[in-house]
Amino acid sequence: MAVIRWLLLVCLLVASSAASAAIEIQHFDDPALDGRYRALTERLRCPKCQNESIGASNSPISADMRARVAERLRAGDSDAEIEQAMISRFGDYVLYDPRLDARTWLLWGLPFALVVVGGGVIAAFVIRRRRLRHADLDAEERRRLQALMARHTDDAAKETS
C-alpha cells in the first residue's frame, strides 16, 4: 500500500512538471514589470479554453498572447493599453472581470441590490417582532397566565413525588 502511494506521488510530480514545462518563462530586468506580467497573464482569459488564464494555459494562442503581453510591457505600454489591445482582437471574453458598461451594470449591480433588498426584508421582520413583544398583557390575561403556570408547577411537583 505504501509503495503504491509512493508511486502515485512520483507519477503526479512527473505529470505536473511536464505540464508546467510547456509554459515558457519571461525574464524582465525590472521586478515591477515581472509583477505586472504575472498579474496581467492571470487576469486575461485564454480565448480557446473554457476557463483558464493565459498564464496557466498551454494552448498556442495563450503562448502568443503571453508573448504579446511581454513585448508590450517592455515597450512601455500601460496595463490598460495591453488589455484594450487584447479586447479589440478577442472581445470582452478575455477579461475575467467584465468592464462596467451599459450591458454589464445589471451583472455588477445585482449583488448589491440583493443585499439592500435582503437587508430591508430582515429589518421589516425585526421591527414587526419588536412591536409584538411590546404589547403588554392586560389584567385578565395576566391572571390566566398565572393560573396556567401554577397548574404546571403543581403537575410537575406531583410527578416527582
Partner: peptide
C-alpha cells in the same frame, strides 16, 4: 508567425 492571425483574433 501568425501576426495577421493574431490581429484578427484567430484562436483556432
Amino acid at each position: 508567425e501568425g501576426s495577421l492571425g493574431f490581429d484578427l483574433g484567430v484562436y483556432g
